[in-house]
Write a protein that binds this DNA or RNA. Structure first.
Lengths: 251, 251
DNA sequence: CGCAACATTGAACGGTATCAAGTATGGTGG
DNA sequence: CCACCATACTTGATACCGTTCAATGTTGCG
């Protein structure tokens, strides 16, 4: 009885944890159930410990269900570059089943929880259910599109534009993930972490943030981000949200 | 008779054009044939005209069979960032069938040829042949891994390291594509184009190339690249080739 | 309360950009 | 075959964006 109860609870938690991810996958009820069965429970993680280490083989697909996680590469002299930010619903490092090694660390920005999908189970599913494979492939593509936008940002935009762009993207992605419902919302990233995402120094991030505030575009204060003038922000960043729309949600 | 002959020649050309791509896809003979049937012939292109324009919907998957192509984003004030380089065997902008818009231009660095796969035919194939979808998904992943490496380069490496890293990657990818068989090989990129890939100015690329030469690492002269000291080059770039290995070729 | 992490500020430095020539190089038409 | 032109490469001078170093202020938390 107790076992039965607990497994029921577990199932419900898994479904709840996977919800934003499943919505994005756009599956029929049956495929969705199969995917849920592949889940290995809900795993909570603290802010302090890294989920995957640079150089490790990937054994499972990690679906983020709560919290915010970064994917970061550390160079030999300590320089760091954040190459991705994950919000609930994202698959952290979405790759096809096979022999993969992660070339980045996966470290939380906040505590949270995730739902692991064992790679062998995913392999079965993708072999048998085309819709599941298609969904995961789209997810890979979505993240690649975001990366591409970051590349342009890092390569050719100035600090001011970069920060503006970054905050635009954060605002939209947080909104889509249900983390931001008003122009003002919780944003748990330090200036140092932003610096590592934007390829800037902490000091400069601080200064540019002040200029953005002085210009009346955004206010970032003690973990709360307030978008004062979305339009100007997007213009400054030359931000076009198209790349964030997934295939399914467009059309 | 003539029609028959010409269609035969065509088929052979398509197969030849797709060869490096097919090898990477790792399919059985039957799936391979199906994929070949989805091809819409071989299309030659000159150096001058862009293959896909920024903002255009994607109607076909373009498999590069000869030449070198860049994927580039142009900002409103003319700044450009190259976000990808394609060599023969690469699918240029590998996305799952669906409503996609390209956010970059696809422009050749050299004349060449490609084999288009109509998106509806690809949709059928991927629905019916899991191995085809898996192969394409892996291709997307491969390119995303390369992009990620470029991001780190752009965000946290100095000009010297960036160029070193870029040349390392070029050397390996050209070798894998059969474009480089010796330490010295044809490299048809101007310093201006490299600048756009690396997020630097032409002038600075020029200077850093001279320093690389003075240090005895590489010589780039009139379209010929000579790797003099691979080991030092890779060390300077903190280059780890792992990200270029596809799943299948590793193991 | 006191510590640790984060944010802010100033000064000086440095890597890269920009501007402005000038020099190959290669292709083209006469 | 040469004059010409366009493109790419090279070089120097100068300016600026962003870094680094160093110090101080602030906040939250055990």
């Amino acid at each position: 009885m107790i076992i039965h109860d607990s497994s029921l609870r577990d199932e419900a938690a898994v479904i709840e944890g996977l919800r934003p991810f499943l919505d994005r996958m756009d599956l029929n009820a049956e495929d969705e159930k199969a995917l849920i069965r592949a889940a290995g429970g809900v795993r909570a993680f603290p802010k302090s410990e890294s989920l995957v280490k640079q150089g490790r083989a990937i054994q499972e697909l990690l679906v983020l269900s709560k919290g915010i996680v970064r994917s970061v590469r550390t160079l030999s002299d300590g320089r760091q570059q954040i190459v991705a930010l994950y919000v609930p619903g994202d698959v952290m490092g979405c790759v096809p089943p096979g022999e993969y090694v992660s070339w980045t660390d996966l470290t939380p920005l906040t505590s949270g929880s995730l739902v692991p999908l064992r790679i062998e189970r995913v392999a079965e599913l993708t072999r048998e259910l085309p819709a599941v494979m298609a969904g995961l492939w789209r997810e890979t593509t979505r993240q690649a599109a975001i990366q591409q936008e970051w590349m342009i940002c890092l390569g050719r935009q100035k600090a001011y534009e970069r920060l503006a762009h970054f905050l635009c993207e954060i605002n939209l992605r947080f909104t889509m993930a249900g983390l931001a419902t008003a122009p003002s919302f919780d944003f748990p990233m330090t200036q140092g972490e932003m610096a590592d995402a934007l390829g800037l120094s902490v000091v400069h991030v601080n200064r540019v943030l002040q200029i953005l505030r002085r210009d009346g575009l955004v206010v970032l204060d003690r973990g709360t981000l307030l978008i004062r003038d979305w339009h100007s922000l997007a213009r400054a960043a030359e931000f076009n949200s198209g790349y964030l729309r997934s295939v399914t949600s467009c059309s």
